[in-house]
Design a protein around this nucleic acid. Structure first.
Length: 775
DNA sequence: CAGTGAGCGAGCTTCCGCTTGACTT
């Protein structure tokens, strides 16, 4: 039995700390929050000062019992959750859930996992900060009220199972508004004039790239300019040198790690977190969910030693970075390697690459600035008043650039930059060629997962632990999709001046190509429109920032948490009631035209199962006909003709084995139906042209496949089969499936064996995995 | 690498923020 029980949030942290503290200390983990509001209800007593109805999270019951036992046996319990709002609440919840006694409980905090920091923390205990706990409670209750009152309203007015919340709804809004901006963007073009000069210096030939600062709006003006240069001489007018410096970026936080891993390694945000978690658990990096750019003294010293021994002391420049992020809580260090002298790790390829990125970024953050010299050369044209400008950048001292340079999201790669030869004022240059190239303006870039995270963080919305889950949520709700889009070919004009002749050519380029970008869906657009119309204040970009200010006041004891909630809830709830009663169905209905066959109106709108086309009015006596939109169609873009085409199915294409064969398009794509069985069309098939022969081929193909997938059948019990599925052999019985125990050969199972597996209550299908029926 | 194919009738869905395992259909 240990005299002392220390409770931290993460088990990996517990393991490390136990090593520092010795025999008298038992270190356990709470695995995050242990108490929360009941999921099935509102969980807030509105009538009674918004009293939260906490319960021990169902999946934490066992853990809490264990911790309770350990606490009872210990002489002192040290609550060592993180020093931020959530961490303080975790300590408070532990105090309650473990029925701790005040006289044998101490609250301690530390920001870095070193023996020194922990010893110091143990020497300086405090009590739980109830103001900070109240601030967390306000945050929790506000999010619950917003989420659990807005979502049901969406179920009523838009479509069941939808969700809204302080964070996710703003994320969707950003994507929807960016798409609108792109849709409304009008492309314009202008001509950019560039020139390549040749100069001989000390017997060596050099090229000089230069650009005209002015742009010409039309081809005619560009041509006129080129013509004005015919027969011109080009002379260096001035050479200006400017010293410059570049500084390294701060060490990684969760969000900057996600951004750089996306830009440099093409990782999704979720993948970055998964890989970082593996590195953390194996002790290779510090904690990966952090908003702090701070490094411990120990880390800075390790970096300093490492830089000195690798590159020399002139490359060292240690710094402390300050966090600029709104609402940062800084309970942890920045993300860095645990041991700076390890510049690589064993593990999967992803782990190696992510670790390499973290190592470089951390080391570079403690290195000297790069010293540059920027040269600007202006070049006179003898036949007109214009001047070309050539710029060059020379690195005088590479500094941190030796190790790492942060990437940018900027897609503009047009700049002409590089090394310039040593030019002098008055020097004559020979023109090799001059080009006037048509360039088009570009709309704002669509969000990637990582650039969305960046934007959310800038707005102070969401936390390091929620960036990745927020993206999963809006994808799962089908508010947005992550997609590639092929580009379109576009032609552009190039005028070329060479050897005193002007040539006019048309070239083509690909534009608008997108890779892994976030696009709003019809549902996302509609839900956003609803929320903007009725709950503008909630999905306002500043809503979080404003309530965060109030949470801070609560944390400082200057405001009472439930008074703040009351002030918010009054008008909010009134608006909910008002909208429930007065707003009609919000289906985004759009009239497309008249169906020539029936003379009925054709609409596109969002129905119970998503976007659909409706022929005929809902009020009319004749029952309207419905058809869901295909995945590649959108309410925005569909026209009458395409809408009517959806009703050409099911189409009868003949008889097979005396039963009708029909072809139709469902929500899983086109299929053939025969004898109430379904057969998906292959990607190469076309539902519009498929014939009976091909349909029969599909039917027979599936039959043979099915026959092969049956391992065992029993005469006595036709409802039971042993099948070979995607996850290996399994037992199918009355539409439920059961795993076969490890080590048994499926071919040798008897009916009795199978029945005992099926009837074993341990194998009963678990509720949370039961597929939701659309009925 | 299997399964799915509705059109609102019934019961359910839902939030954000802390943390890890998880072995289904």
């Amino acid at each position: 039995m240990s005299k002392n029980l220390v409770i931290v949030e993460s088990p990996a942290k517990a393991k490390t700390i136990e090593g520092f503290l010795g025999k008298d200390f038992l270190v356990k983990s709470s695995y995050g929050h242990v108490m929360d509001l009941n999921k099935a209800q509102l969980g807030v007593d509105i009538e009674n000062g918004f009293e939260p109805q906490y319960e021990i999270a169902p999946d934490k019951k066992k853990l809490v019992a264990e911790l309770k036992k350990a606490a009872k046996e210990a002489e002192m319990v040290w609550l060592a959750s993180d020093e931020d709002r959530e961490g303080e609440a975790i300590s408070w919840h532990l105090f309650k859930a473990l029925s701790l006694k005040e006289e044998k409980t101490k609250r301690i905090v530390f920001h870095e996992i070193t023996k020194q920091a922990i010893t110091k923390a143990i020497e300086n205990p405090r009590s739980i900060d109830t103001n900070l706990v109240s601030a967390q409670q306000a945050r929790r209750v506000l999010d619950r009220l917003v989420g659990y009152e807005l979502s049901p309203l969406l179920w009523k007015k838009v479509k069941p199972s939808l969700s809204a919340g302080r964070v996710q709804s703003v994320a969707v809004r950003l994507i929807v508004e960016r798409e609108e901006e792109i849709k409304n963007f009008s492309v314009s073009s202008s001509f950019r004039v560039t020139a390549v000069f040749v100069v001989e210096i000390d017997g060596q030939k050099h090229q000089v790239q230069a650009e005209l600062p002015e742009r010409y709006n039309t081809e005619k003006e560009a041509l006129a300019y080129l013509e004005s240069c015919l027969g011109a001489d080009y002379v260096v007018h001035s050479v200006e040198k400017k010293p410059g410096k570049k500084s390294p970026a701060p060490p990684f936080t969760t969000s900057t790690l996600q951004q750089e891993a996306s830009r440099k390694l093409s990782f999704s945000v979720a993948n970055t977190m998964r890989v970082a978690q593996q590195l953390y658990e194996s002790g290779k990096i510090t904690y990966m969910r952090t908003d702090s750019v701070n490094l411990s003294d120990l880390a800075i010293n390790m970096a300093k030693n490492e830089i000195t021994s690798r590159y020399g002391s002139q490359y060292v420049k240690t710094r402390r970075f300050a966090t600029k992020t709104k609402g940062a809580q800084e309970a942890h260090e920045a993300i860095r390697p645990t041991y700076m002298d390890k510049d690589f790790v064993e593990g999967s390829a992803d782990e190696k690459r992510l670790y390499d990125l973290i190592w470089k970024r951390t080391i570079a953050s403690q290195m000297a600035e790069a010293e540059l010299e920027r040269t600007i050369v202006t070049i006179d044209v003898s036949t007109n008043k214009s001047q070309f400008v050539a710029t060059g950048e020379v690195i005088l001292f590479d500094g941190f650039l030796k190790v790492y340079l942060e990437s940018t999201d900027d897609e503009n790669g047009d700049a002409v930059e590089g090394l310039l030869p040593p030019l002098k004022k008055g020097q004559k240059l020979n023109l090799n060629e001059m080009l006037a190239t048509q360039r088009f303006t570009r709309h704002a870039a669509r969000y990637t997962e990582a650039s969305l995270v960046k934007k959310l963080e800038e707005l102070g919305i969401g936390r390091p632990s929620t960036f990745a889950p927020t993206i999963s949520t809006i994808l799962k709700r089908e508010y947005v999709v992550k997609e590639d889009r092929p580009g379109e070919k576009r032609s552009f004009k190039v005028l070329q001046l060479q050897k005193d002749k002007i040539k006019n050519t048309t070239q083509t380029e690909t534009t608008g190509q997108e890779k892994a970008k976030l696009f709003p869906t019809d549902i996302g657009i509609l839900v956003n429109k609803f929320l903007v119309q009725y709950f503008d204040s909630i999905i306002d970009y500043n809503f979080t920032a404003n309530v965060e200010k109030e949470f801070d006041e609560i944390a400082e004891g200057r405001k009472v948490w439930n008074e703040m909630i009351k002030e918010f809830y009054g008008p909010f709830h009134k608006k909910i009631v008002d909208t429930t009663e007065n707003a009609g169905k919000f289906s985004g209905e759009k009239f497309l035209g008249i169906d020539p066959a029936s003379g009925n109106n054709v609409f596109v709108k969002v129905g119970r199962f998503g976007p659909m086309v409706q022929i005929g009015d809902t009020e009319s006596e004749e029952k309207p006909r419905f058809s869901g939109l295909r995945k590649d169609q959108s309410m925005e873009e569909i026209n009458l003709e395409e809408a009517l085409k959806l009703f050409e199915y099911p189409r009868n294409i003949g008889k097979f084995e005396e039963k009708d064969v029909t072809v139709a398009v469902g929500r899983f794509g086109p299929y053939v139906k025969h004898n109430s069985q379904f057969f998906s069309l292959a990607k190469t098939d076309d539902a519009a042209t498929i014939d009976l022969d091909r349909a029969v081929e599909l039917i027979e193909g599936k039959r043979t496949k099915e026959a092969q997938s049956v391992i065992l059948e029993f005469e006595k019990e036709p409802a039971l089969k042993v099948l070979n599925g995607r996850y290996g052999p399994y037992i199918s019985y009355n539409k439920s499936n059961f795993k076969i125990p490890k080590g048994t050969e499926p071919e040798k199972l008897s009916l009795e064996d199978c029945m005992s597996i099926v009837n074993n209550p341990e194998n009963a299908p678990k509720k949370r995995f039961v597929k939701k029926k659309g009925k």
